[in-house]
Design a protein around this nucleic acid. Structure first.
Lengths: 331, 331
DNA sequence: CGGAGTTATGTAATCGATTTCAAGAGGGGT
DNA sequence: ACCCCTCTTGAAATCGATTACATAACTCCG
């Protein structure tokens, strides 16, 4: 049966050695004498042998895979983070699995937490219950889970929000509003706190806060709410907790005939690629998404490698000033 | 050692049955007598037993995973397709691995093609050499590989492009340009062909074709090239082969003081979520990305399940008319 | 020249499940 | 009472690699 995949014994037989030796050539070549190694390598070539990972993993008691638990795979914010993780994991011989925590249902998430399916987890969803993740390598990226002790890779959300609001204040705005993320979310809270703190420090009134959920559509709704306010009560600058919401907000406002930044300055958060090309180009806070992914992956690998527990990593953000924010009064 | 994960023999011992019986309870409960089953289930609960997938997979000669080979993970166009795939695969008990074919390097892609790592492949990158994928379950989604016989899940790119150009022609435009994708790409060719065909059928001159690569930045460059043309040579409508390029194009044109659609009508392709909220909202061709992902996954599962070879699936697109296209002459 | 030390290789146990085959128990028909 | 059949269950082989331990050959040194 030539359609049968050759196994290690086939190689061993052809090379006239034991399976042990073949295995050694595969995973630890330098302990085999050069002549034998040559012999085995020839046999491998001739048979077209390919290692069976399931067997190796079983013996090694590992899986060779790590999973990223993402709250919403279709959100472009995450795709670049995944790219960063993939860039680190592939060379290290690890598979990157992805799971959408909303789609999958709690059960499936629990499934991924099983040691026999993955060697570790990168959690990007702060809303997961802390106890579904057993006692195993976990790294929290971007979001975090309040009860859970695990290394975190993220940015200083509070300081970043402060930076954003200070930019608006520096432009002379005094009535500054905020469109927050979903209630209960850790990022929502940190960014709101940062915004409030900045206003307070400047002696400005607390922000008008509208509720969103990071999505485009919720930003659009916030735009509608803003428009519905009497003109003299509208904040003249808005800081939104995500770029997606900022896009929705600006879209709604401009489709109704007003202009950004003439009628309202808008500040986003994330710096997703597209917003640099909008009209107006969005001022925002840049998160180093690729780097977040890379560091999270690296951190997880070191934990899998046995390091007791890695350090938290806080990556720097950058204020990106573009055309959606302007000095007040701007008309 | 109570910290050792319990294995099937531990459960068997506690329940007073053989490992075979435990295994049967796990994977085929109805062939075990109710009393014994109860016994075993109790033992499982007491020991906290969890199945080892590596062992099961070894025995079953499968991996329980499929990989999506994506040309560029950080491109939001793909994330929603991944979401669709995940939605189908997770309930079926399959892991979704993702690999970035650009990041990984040909070697790694070959690695994923190994049967011992994945049970099947969903290829979203038409630029892969046909021979790296052995003789195993493969589905091509969106893009395809000319030499490779495998079921395809995609749209009729040529007809879609025709539809886009006809929309522009219907608006009265006569000089219609096209910004194409990267040369050699199958989508580039199909969409260009569709555009040319539509113009020809209407008796309009062939399009001015600018080269892009689907990326935002290449769209911005195309915008700059368009601007650099003498005003009386500029096409008065542009059809771009991706929404990302359309965004870049519009951004560049508007940042230089012109207005869309007054100075030029712009038509995109894909309907990524954001473009509905831009100013102006982008007219485009909607690809059912989630459905593409779902069908591709389903198709792959049926091939893994033994079906000889599934049918190609062509999903319908939709012309979405928004504000970036207007009747000519529009000023 | 004998024994310790090193190097290269083979034998067989092992990772943790699934599954084939055989056998025992019980039921029903004659 | 006997034979055949179905229903459960267990013993042991199996999936395909890795590795602990044993062994053989060879080197080195007093």
């Amino acid at each position: 049966m030539e359609h049968q995949r050759p196994k290690i014994v086939d190689v061993a037989r052809l090379a006239g050695v034991s399976t042990a030796t073949v295995s050694r050539v595969l995973s630890n070549p330098q302990i085999v004498s050069p002549e034998t190694r040559e012999l085995v390598e020839d046999a491998i070539r001739q048979t077209g042998y390919r290692l069976n990972h399931a067997a190796r993993n079983l013996r090694h008691r590992r899986t060779g895979g790590v999973v990223a638990l993402v709250p919403n795979l279709s959100n472009p914010f995450f795709s670049q983070i995944l790219a960063g993780m993939a860039a680190v994991l592939a060379p290290a011989g690890y598979n990157l699995l992805v799971a959408d925590t909303r789609t999958a249902g709690g059960d499936t998430v629990l499934g991924y937490a099983e040691p026999s399916r993955t060697d570790g987890l990168i959690v990007l969803d702060g809303a997961l219950p802390a106890d579904v993740l057993g006692r195993r390598p976990v790294v929290l990226a971007c979001e975090w889970i309040p009860g859970l002790v695990a290394p975190r890779v993220n940015i200083d959300n509070r300081a970043a929000a402060t930076m954003a609001v200070e930019h608006l204040a520096d432009l002379g705005h005094r009535r500054i509003g905020h469109v927050a993320g979903p209630p209960g979310n850790v990022l929502t809270q940190a960014r709101l706190a940062g915004a409030e703190q900045a206003l307070k420090a400047r002696g400005l009134p607390p922000p008008l806060v509208l509720q969103g959920d990071f999505s485009l559509e919720s930003g659009r709704r916030a735009g509608a709410e803003w428009l519905a306010l009497p003109a003299d009560e509208r904040p003249d600058a808005m800081f939104l907790a995500s770029d997606a919401m900022a896009c929705g907000f600006i879209g709604e406002v401009q489709h109704r005939g007003l202009t950004v930044p003439r009628d309202v300055s808008v500040m986003g958060f994330d710096d997703i690629e597209l917003v640099a090309h909008m009209t107006p180009a969005l001022s925002t806070i840049r998160q180093p998404r690729e780097a977040i992914g890379r560091h999270a992956a690296q951190c997880l690998l070191s934990m899998i490698g046995g390091e007791a527990s890695a350090e938290d990593i806080v990556l720097p953000v950058e204020l990106v000033v573009r055309a959606s924010t302007a000095a007040w009064p701007s008309r």
